[in-house]
Nucleic acid binder design. Structure first.
Lengths: 318, 318
DNA sequence: TTATTTTGCGTAATCAGTTACGTAATTGGT
DNA sequence: ACCAATTACGTAACTGATTACGCAAAATAA
């Protein structure tokens, strides 16, 4: 299919489907060729049963990787053709125990040649190709077991998007964004406090001029996240408080908080700080989890000028 | 899936289907993740249209490798969502010309990132495997284009079965089979003639004792085909007539005729014959085609003791 | 022991594709 | 110039799978 060469890997699902279709279109003919009165779709269940043991519907479903209603239907069909018998389990009356009949066993012998020839054909085809389809399928099954395609795509998306985010130092033109982004999230969870207004309305005066820092995350040159490092003159244990971290809800899911956090910690380190403090609230689970990832640890028995702070964390920079 | 390791290559169809299923289960989520209001099944048609040109239903179907009713449905659905417009071709009023709308074009821009991320994800997965699934799929498509799975299996079957056929010299115990196999086919197409009875009822007397030969094809020690080499004393041009070739209808499709023919020609050669004759009838197309394959050429203007012979062939053994 | 949860499995609805078929328009052969 | 064959495409029926749902039996918890 030329189409696939043009669309690229995006269409791998379609491609699998179409190859499967080409192959399974021949399947009924092949059964007819060998005079085996079996529908191709019966094969997986039939094959498991022909190993000799009796099985329940759900056991079969699990082994062949189908849904149980699918197996249920298949077994009813085979039962009608006299290939299997169903009987209720005496001990557990919900169970439907399926066994191959005499006729079923005869067919399973007859199918051996077909099995052998098809296998040999496929092996021959595999030998004629450079890339082993069979092994490749196995490898993909394993990869997808470890992590689904969706999860992988989510990661890729984040990776790309976080590459588009730039972290820069505060400039006067970001003053409005610094205020707005913070006001937005504070108001969704809490109420603005006096200390908030001071710092957010006058960042130069209350943060920067006192030796603090503000970093801004830009997405396509638009500020979408901010974070501040505020000098702590009142407590000699700490150099800075990490505060005023806010990310626009529109830019969520791009690891912007993480990037900002990493950048601001790097900044603290570069100016010689050795210990940081931060106050947060226990209802902000994702934020606290982020702080943990950045290297902060919980501490007990501190107070903060903010009413909303009921969780206290610190981080050593050495 | 452990199941596939147990069943072997026979289940390659199932395996393709299941991998496809795992992948396509994630597809709608991925579209949602990127905020693209497109159904996964629309993608192939959508992608072709987003290349810019307008297309008819059948053109689309051919390009994406679906049936036209499938495309027809997909286009109606997309049309309802305002992604495409349909309009009748003025020149050929049967044609339904499909174009992307403004909204469709917007989505096609939005999808670019999704496309890019999914592609990158798949590439990454391919890089993590030893056997390249993508290339393998391409190779299989090519192989199946050249020769379908069914054709390949038929060949394999013949190959195996012809290995089970043994060609042996005549023994008295095969006398009945020699007669029955010939009577059966002669009576289905023609009527038995006097010359037939002579040779078939008394092969020792009329064939072997005059320096002729009979070969028998055995399938699991049961005679399923016979063929004779009859001395031609009346015509100095030829050493033998190849005659009385008969294969049981139950054993058709196993190249038994070919094996018998090759064996008897080999026999003729080994006893120093240099030219063979045979007479047949023009309605026996497969037989004549077999004689051609064995090396016989048509000749004109001969007669034969058999009424049914209206085709005459010969073969040089040098 | 009794109430709740889990399990086994059958039925119904849905889904994404297919083949079969019918109709109308166009093309081609005589 | 006309009749037959071919083409475009929509509708309907079918297919092989799935998810959703519900009931009864068994297992578990209170």
């Amino acid at each position: 299919m030329e189409f696939f060469e043009k669309t690229g890997k995006f269409a791998i699902g379609s491609r699998l489907r179409m190859l499967n279709e080409k192959i399974s279109k021949d399947a009924p003919e092949i059964y007819r060729l060998f005079n085996v009165e079996l529908q191709p779709k019966w094969f997986p269940a039939f094959h498991v049963l022909s190993q000799g043991e009796e099985k329940t519907i759900t056991q079969l479903a699990k082994e062949i990787g189908h849904s149980h209603p699918s197996v249920s239907k298949i077994i009813t069909e085979m039962s009608k053709k006299g290939l299997v018998t169903e009987k209720k389990d005496e001990e557990d009356k919900r169970r439907n125990i399926v066994t191959l009949t005499e006729k079923g066993r005869e067919i399973s012998e007859k199918i051996a040649f077909q099995y052998q020839d098809v296998n040999a054909t496929v092996e021959e085809m595999l030998a004629q190709t450079e890339n082993d389809l069979w092994k490749a399928l196995g490898e993909w099954e394993k990869l997808l077991e470890q992590k689904s395609l969706l999860e992988r795509v989510i990661e890729k998306k984040k990776e790309r998007e976080s590459k588009m985010v730039k972290i820069v130092e505060f400039k006067p033109e970001y003053k409005q964004a610094f205020r707005d982004l913070n006001v937005e999230w504070i108001n969704t969870y809490f109420k603005m406090e006096a200390a908030d207004y001071k710092a957010l309305d006058h960042p130069e005066e209350y943060i920067l001029s006192k030796g603090g820092y503000i970093m801004v995350a830009l997405l396509e040159d638009v500020p979408v996240g901010v974070c501040a490092l505020i000098r702590m003159d009142d407590d000699p244990d700490y150099d800075f408080e990490l505060a005023k971290m806010a990310v626009s809800p529109k830019a969520q899911g791009k690891s912007i908080g993480k990037l900002l956090g990493q950048a601001i910690i790097e900044k603290a380190r570069s100016v010689g700080a050795s210990k940081l403090y931060l106050g947060s609230n226990s209802i902000l689970k994702p934020a606290i989890s982020l702080y943990h990832k950045l290297g902060f640890r919980m501490i007990e028995g501190r107070t903060s000028p903010y009413v909303r702070a009921n969780v206290h964390m610190e981080m050593n920079l050495n």
